[in-house]
C-alpha cells in the first residue's frame, strides 16, 4: 500500500542543510497498523507529511497503492488527500471559529457530499467518540483530549484508506515507553 524508497527530506537553514529524513525506506501493507517511535526532532512528523502527500521528499521515491506519486502535480495530490488519506495533526489544527461538528463536517463538505448525509455522518462519528454533548462547542471550549478526539473524528469521517496520526514524543508513558494516550487508546491498541 505504502512504499518508500530511500526517502530524504533536507531543509536548508541558512547555508546549512538539515536532514530531517535521510534514506528512509518503508513498506506498509493494507490493514497493517504501524507505530513509528523516536525522540523529539527525529523526523516523525516530517515522515508523516511526506506519506500524507503534504510535503515532498528532496530525494527518493514513493509508491502509493502501486502508483508512483513522487512527482505528482499539486491538484492530483490534493485529490488523493481528499479521497484516501485521513490526517490527525500533531497540533490538531481545528478551525477555531467552527464548532466540533463544523470541524468534523469540513472534509465531507470538501468531498461534495449532500448536507443531510454530512450531518448524519457527523452525528454518528461524534457519538462514536463520545462527543455528542460537545458538538456545538468551539475548540476553545473543549479539553485537550476532546480536541484530539475531534481531530481524530475529522480524520476518519471520510472513511479513508490510510489514517496518519501524528503525536509528539512528549506523550510517551514513562513506565512502559508505549503511547497510552490518544490514537492507540482510541483504536484499542494498548
Amino acid at each position: 500500500m505504502i512504499r518508500l524508497q530511500a526517502i530524504e527530506r533536507r531543509f536548508a537553514v541558512g547555508d546549512e542543510a538539515v536532514y530531517a529524513l535521510n534514506g528512509v525506506s518503508l513498506n506498509v501493507e493494507k490493514g497493517e497498523y504501524l507505530s513509528i517511535m523516536g525522540p523529539s526532532g527525529s523526523g516523525k512528523s516530517t515522515l508523516l507529511h511526506i506519506i500524507g502527500l503534504l510535503d515532498r521528499p528532496t530525494a527518493g521515491q514513493y509508491w502509493l497503492a502501486g502508483k508512483d506519486v513522487t512527482g505528482l502535480a499539486d491538484e492530483e495530490r490534493a485529490q488523493i488527500r481528499r479521497e484516501k488519506i485521513g490526517f490527525v495533526f500533531q497540533l490538531f489544527h481545528l478551525v477555531p471559529r467552527l464548532t466540533a461538528a463544523g470541524n468534523v463536517e469540513l472534509p465531507l463538505t470538501l468531498a461534495g457530499l449532500p448536507r443531510e448525509e454530512r450531518e448524519e455522518r457527523v452525528r454518528e462519528i461524534l457519538a462514536a467518540y463520545g462527543l455528542s454533548a460537545r458538538a456545538r462547542h468551539v475548540p476553545s471550549q473543549l479539553s485537550g483530549g476532546e480536541r484530539q478526539r475531534v481531530a481524530i473524528a475529522r480524520a476518519t469521517v471520510t472513511r479513508p484508506e490510510i489514517l496518519l496520526a501524528d503525536e509528539p514524543t512528549g506523550n510517551l508513558d514513562r513506565g512502559s515507553g508505549r503511547e497510552v494516550t490518544g490514537i492507540d487508546r482510541v483504536f484499542g491498541h494498548p
Binding site: 500524507g52 503534504l54 499539486d74 491538484e75 490534493a78 485529490q79 488523493i80 488527500r81 481528499r82 479521497e83 488519506i85 490526517f87 495533526f89 489544527h93 478551525v95 469540513l106 472534509p107 470538501l110 468531498a111
Partner: peptide, 16 residues
C-alpha cells in the same frame, strides 16, 4: 493562514 493550510491539507483544490 492556518485555516487555509488546513483546507489544503484536507484536500481542497487550489481552485476551491
Amino acid at each position: 493562514r492556518e485555516e487555509i493550510g488546513l483546507l489544503k491539507a484536507l484536500g481542497a483544490a487550489s481552485g476551491k
